[in-house]
Measured scan of single mutants.
Amino acid sequence: MAMNGTITTWFKDKGFGFIKDENGDNRYFHVIKVANPDLIKKDAAVTFEPTTNNKGLSAYAVKVVPL
């Protein structure tokens, strides 16, 4: 089920960042999981599918909501 969130941290040079989800949890995401990576920036609103990996909470099918 899709969730909403906000990008809180973005490491462009490393290709990953973190999203604060609607429950207040931080989720890892990688640029290859983003549909529109050219719009990635700190504080951008996103929708995504929540999941977990071996390191904890993460996100896939991430879409940055255009302003």
Rank of each mutant, 00 (worst) to 15 (best):
19 I>H: 01
6 T>P: 00
19 I>S: 00
35 A>M: 15
8 T>R: 10
2 A>Q: 13
30 H>G: 06
54 N>Q: 13
66 P>C: 12
14 K>D: 06
2 A>S: 14
25 D>H: 09
23 N>R: 10
39 L>S: 09
49 E>Y: 15
27 R>H: 04
24 G>Q: 05
37 P>V: 06
66 P>K: 11
23 N>I: 06
47 T>M: 09
50 P>K: 04
53 N>D: 09
36 N>I: 04
52 T>I: 11
57 L>T: 03
65 V>Y: 10
60 Y>W: 11
61 A>Y: 09
50 P>I: 05
21 D>S: 03
11 F>I: 08
35 A>Y: 14
65 V>D: 08
67 L>G: 14
44 A>Q: 06
47 T>I: 12
7 I>R: 00
61 A>L: 07
63 K>W: 11
63 K>C: 11
20 K>A: 07
60 Y>L: 14
36 N>T: 08
41 K>G: 06
30 H>K: 06
5 G>K: 01
34 V>D: 04
29 F>E: 00
44 A>P: 01
56 G>F: 09
51 T>I: 13
43 D>E: 08
51 T>E: 12
39 L>K: 12
8 T>L: 10
62 V>K: 00
23 N>W: 08
52 T>E: 12
19 I>Q: 00
43 D>N: 13
23 N>G: 04
41 K>P: 01
66 P>V: 14
8 T>Y: 09
37 P>L: 05
39 L>M: 13
28 Y>V: 05
8 T>N: 06
14 K>Y: 09
22 E>K: 06
52 T>R: 14
32 I>A: 15
10 W>M: 02
12 K>G: 08
49 E>C: 14
2 A>I: 15
31 V>K: 12
46 V>H: 01
50 P>V: 04
62 V>W: 02
66 P>A: 13
40 I>K: 00
60 Y>M: 14
4 N>I: 08
25 D>L: 08
5 G>I: 02
38 D>W: 15
49 E>K: 15
13 D>P: 06
37 P>C: 05
63 K>P: 00
58 S>K: 04
28 Y>I: 06
16 F>W: 12
25 D>R: 08
32 I>V: 12
4 N>W: 13
38 D>S: 12
50 P>W: 03
7 I>D: 00
55 K>E: 07
3 M>R: 06
34 V>K: 03
31 V>F: 09
61 A>K: 13
9 T>S: 14
15 G>K: 07
13 D>I: 08
36 N>M: 04
40 I>F: 04
3 M>W: 06
10 W>I: 04
19 I>E: 00
48 F>N: 00
46 V>R: 00
37 P>T: 04
15 G>I: 02
13 D>K: 11
56 G>V: 07
5 G>E: 01
10 W>S: 01
41 K>S: 09
21 D>R: 02
67 L>R: 10
43 D>H: 14
29 F>L: 03
7 I>E: 00
49 E>M: 15
44 A>D: 03
49 E>T: 15
1 M>L: 13
33 K>W: 15
17 G>W: 02
24 G>V: 01
3 M>E: 03
26 N>E: 11
17 G>D: 00
57 L>R: 06
35 A>S: 12
58 S>W: 07
59 A>Y: 02
13 D>S: 12
5 G>Q: 00
45 A>W: 12
6 T>Y: 12
67 L>A: 14
27 R>D: 00
41 K>V: 10
25 D>K: 08
21 D>E: 00
65 V>I: 13
4 N>S: 14
21 D>Y: 01
3 M>A: 05
58 S>N: 05
48 F>A: 00
53 N>L: 08
27 R>K: 00
3 M>F: 07
49 E>A: 13
20 K>Y: 09
48 F>I: 02
38 D>R: 10
24 G>E: 05
1 M>W: 09
60 Y>P: 01
10 W>A: 01
33 K>P: 03
6 T>E: 04
56 G>H: 08
1 M>G: 14
54 N>Y: 11
33 K>F: 15
55 K>M: 12
34 V>G: 04
22 E>I: 07
5 G>R: 00
30 H>N: 13
39 L>V: 07
21 D>V: 02
6 T>R: 12
53 N>C: 10
31 V>G: 06
20 K>G: 04
20 K>V: 09
64 V>D: 01
47 T>Y: 07
16 F>V: 04
8 T>W: 08
59 A>K: 01
20 K>I: 10
45 A>G: 07
43 D>C: 13
12 K>W: 08
60 Y>S: 14
37 P>Y: 05
44 A>G: 05
55 K>S: 09
39 L>N: 07
38 D>G: 10
55 K>H: 13
23 N>P: 02
55 K>W: 15
37 P>I: 06
43 D>L: 08
12 K>E: 10
55 K>G: 10
36 N>K: 04
30 H>R: 07
29 F>Y: 02
32 I>H: 15
7 I>V: 09
18 F>Y: 10
44 A>E: 05
19 I>W: 02
41 K>D: 06
15 G>V: 03
27 R>Q: 01
37 P>F: 05
60 Y>N: 15
38 D>L: 11
28 Y>L: 06
31 V>N: 05
66 P>T: 13
26 N>T: 14
21 D>N: 00
19 I>T: 01
49 E>L: 15
51 T>N: 09
9 T>E: 11
35 A>T: 14
27 R>P: 00
42 K>S: 06
42 K>I: 14
33 K>I: 12
34 V>N: 04
16 F>M: 05
56 G>P: 04
25 D>M: 10
9 T>L: 15
18 F>M: 06
49 E>P: 00
6 T>S: 06
38 D>F: 09
28 Y>A: 04
26 N>V: 15
22 E>F: 06
29 F>V: 04
47 T>N: 07
54 N>L: 13
23 N>Y: 10
42 K>W: 06
4 N>E: 08
56 G>S: 06
19 I>N: 01
67 L>H: 13
21 D>Q: 01
25 D>A: 09
49 E>I: 15
55 K>T: 08
12 K>C: 08
17 G>S: 01
7 I>N: 00
58 S>R: 05
64 V>F: 04
52 T>A: 12
6 T>H: 11
56 G>C: 08
56 G>D: 04
39 L>Y: 12
55 K>Q: 11
1 M>D: 10
34 V>F: 05
20 K>E: 08
56 G>M: 10
64 V>T: 03
37 P>M: 05
2 A>F: 11
31 V>M: 09
13 D>Y: 09
35 A>D: 12
10 W>R: 00
20 K>T: 14
40 I>N: 00
16 F>T: 03
39 L>D: 10
5 G>S: 02
5 G>V: 01
11 F>Y: 13
12 K>D: 07
58 S>Q: 10
50 P>R: 03
43 D>Q: 09
5 G>C: 03
29 F>R: 00
61 A>W: 10
12 K>Q: 10
64 V>C: 05
31 V>T: 07
43 D>S: 10
38 D>A: 12
12 K>V: 09
2 A>E: 10
66 P>G: 11
24 G>C: 07
25 D>S: 07
36 N>S: 05
36 N>R: 05
7 I>P: 00
11 F>G: 01
30 H>P: 06
34 V>Y: 03
40 I>R: 00
23 N>L: 09
27 R>V: 05
34 V>A: 07
61 A>V: 06
